[in-house]
């Protein structure tokens, strides 16, 4: 447990202090959302209609950008070899790194999303649903992304391969995340979407550390 917490704290402080990773990801997120009104026109009705989707897609891309850093630096300087050899099971080490990644990217993305929702003119109820869906969905993004990040270690044109692997796997969270915001307030619409999104995140929590650890082991073989 001490090793788990130590690894978590180390990754988190690296992400927060070193060159402002979190700041860069947030900056990208904001800019990506701001680009859309220029592209599709500033009519509030149109933006309100597609706003949730825009914010979600931008959040996906921002999470994708940050995946590069999840294992790459540790792979380069040999730290991953030490992690494999250490007493901490590699699955738990992956979990610690994913948790740190989520606190450093997913959580800030969720926190800033209400602000961006104002830019695309969502109403308060939709903003609350958007915040909840991003908060619930981003753990799945970090966990699923960790598998692809581990698989693509050492590949040629790594970032392109990484995005090709990750984006198809990000479609289910996107469908249910954006769907939760657009679901009508009648009945259980939004709640059902959020529950499915939570199920996706929990399934990713249960399965992805195993897959990532297997991928890391074969990368270091």
């Amino acid at each position: 447990m001490a090793a788990f917490l130590g690894l978590f704290r180390r990754d988190l402080s690296l992400a927060l202090r070193q060159g402002g990773d979190t700041g860069l990801v947030l900056g990208f997120f904001v800019l990506a959302v701001v680009l859309f009104p220029f592209g599709v026109g500033p009519e509030p009705e149109l933006l309100r209609r597609i706003g949730a989707g825009i914010v979600w897609v931008a959040a996906l891309l921002a999470a994708l950008l940050s995946l590069d850093r999840l294992f790459e630096a540790d792979y380069q300087d040999g730290e991953l070899d030490l992690l494999v050899l250490s007493n901490l099971p590699l699955e738990l080490a992956v979990l610690a790194k994913c948790a740190a990644h989520w606190v450093a990217t997913g959580l800030p993305l969720a926190l800033i999303s209400p602000l961006l929702a104002l830019l695309v003119d969502l109403d308060p109820a939709s903003i609350a649903r958007l915040f909840a869906s991003i908060l619930i969905g981003t753990p799945a993004l970090s966990l699923v992304g960790s598998v692809a990040a581990a698989l693509s270690l050492g590949a040629r044109r790594r970032s392109v391969v990484l995005s090709l692997l990750v984006l198809p796997l990000y479609i289910p969270p996107l469908i249910f995340g954006a769907g939760a915001v657009e679901a009508s307030e009648i009945g259980d619409g939004a709640r059902a979407y959020l529950l499915v999104l939570g199920a996706i995140s929990l399934a990713a929590l249960a399965l992805c550390p195993w897959a990532s650890a297997a991928a890391l082991r074969q990368a270091l073989d």
Binding site: L151, S152, G154, R158, V161, L165, A215, Q218, A219, D221
Partner: peptide, 23 residues
């Protein structure tokens, strides 16, 4: 497509095969 890209992305073919298998 992702599988094919990943399998062919490594200089060492057996490395690509194993990464692709996990994917």
């Amino acid at each position: 497509l992702g599988y094919i890209a990943l399998v062919n992305a490594f200089d060492d073919p057996s490395r690509g095969g194993r990464a692709g298998a996990v994917l």
